[in-house]
Amino acid sequence: MSTAYDARRPHRSEFLTLRGLRHHVMRWGPPPDGSRPLLVMLHGWMDVGASFQFMVDAFREDRSVLAMDWRGFGLTDSSGGDAYWFPDYLGDLDALLDAVSPDAPVDLLGHSMGGNIVMTYAGVRPQRLRKLINLEGFGLPETIPEMAPARLAEWLDELKQPQHLKTYDDLGGVVDRLMKTNPRLAPDKAAWLAPHWSQRRDDGRWHILGDPAHKRTNPVLYRRAEALACWSRIEAPTLWVEGSETNISQWWGNRYPREDFETRLSVVPQLQRVTLQQAGHMLHHDQPDALAREVQAFLG
């Protein structure tokens, strides 16, 4: 296995009880002192807060940064149920900001699923943000009411079946999995991330730190109009960042045309856009230095 990446700015782990669940929080830099907002970063599906380490290391200067593991990911408690609901992520984020920055707006960054969450939150709680950064949180393809019966039936069927995530003989297997999922991830970064993304358990095997219940079909339809109603209410200056190699058809085929997404993004009132070259969906792994430069320039 490759030598692990040497983190320039090691994180500090904390645990906060939010809405009855023990949430894992990572902090970098000095405590917030009021001179600049706390930067809160939120990861995507099947990822962890530690995933932002490479970008934090690339910042030119120390600032107060926090990343949280969403419920059911990393070292945060699972929901305790057999399904996950999007509004719970908003509730957890609201509780997090109440705990870590109750009296001051934050700078808020989200990747992928986390990007979708922060966009909705920014429209619902505009006063809680100074600036907003969305790293490839595209939203989902539009659904129609006629899809509900089949979706609900699929969910009910899946509730009867245990969900599993693949386990690995050793940490090297986890490293290989990370690099297979994202061939642009450098071996040293994969070796560093693997023990944050997985855990050796009593059976001697390495388990991915994600609740398998996340794999179940979401029975709630995605309503584009509701998402846009929130996006259009965003007051914070917003930075949209995507990778030059990202192609949304790889996930949804022709169900989500690029022009549909462009229409959605057009409702965001104060929008700046950046495309990172030689980067795919995992921008913070592929081009952490370039991403850090763009984020710092935007935040000021």
Rank of each mutant, 00 (worst) to 15 (best):
D6Y: 07
R9Y: 06
E14Y: 07
L16H: 13
H24S: 05
H24T: 03
V25N: 01
G29E: 06
D33V: 04
G34E: 05
G34I: 02
S35C: 08
P37E: 07
L38C: 06
L42R: 02
H43C: 09
G44D: 04
W45P: 11
D47T: 04
S51G: 12
S51T: 09
F52W: 13
V56M: 08
F59N: 04
R63I: 14
V65Y: 00
W70R: 04
G72W: 12
G72A: 08
F73H: 15
F73Q: 13
G74N: 04
D82A: 14
D82N: 15
A83S: 13
A83T: 08
Y84M: 01
W85N: 10
F86N: 09
D88S: 10
Y89W: 13
L93D: 02
S101Y: 10
D107F: 14
D107V: 12
H111K: 06
S112K: 06
M113W: 11
G114R: 02
N116I: 13
I117C: 09
V118W: 00
V118H: 00
T120S: 13
R125V: 09
Q127T: 02
R128K: 05
L129F: 00
L132S: 09
L135W: 01
G137W: 04
T143W: 04
I144A: 02
A148W: 03
A150T: 08
A150C: 02
R151K: 11
R151L: 11
L152R: 15
L152I: 14
D157W: 15
Q161P: 00
T167R: 09
T167C: 04
D170K: 08
G172T: 13
G172W: 14
G173A: 08
R177P: 01
R177L: 11
T181L: 14
T181A: 15
D188H: 06
A194V: 09
W206S: 01
A213E: 11
A213I: 03
H214F: 11
R216W: 07
N218K: 14
V220I: 11
A225Y: 00
A227T: 10
A229D: 05
A229E: 09
S232G: 12
A236W: 09
A236I: 00
P237K: 06
L239E: 04
E245Q: 08
N247P: 09
I248V: 03
W251L: 15
P257R: 00
R258N: 15
F261K: 00
V268R: 05
V268E: 10
Q270M: 12
Q272F: 05
Q272R: 14
T275P: 14
D286R: 06
D286G: 05
P288V: 06
L291F: 03
E294N: 14
V295C: 02
V295M: 08
A297L: 02
G300T: 14
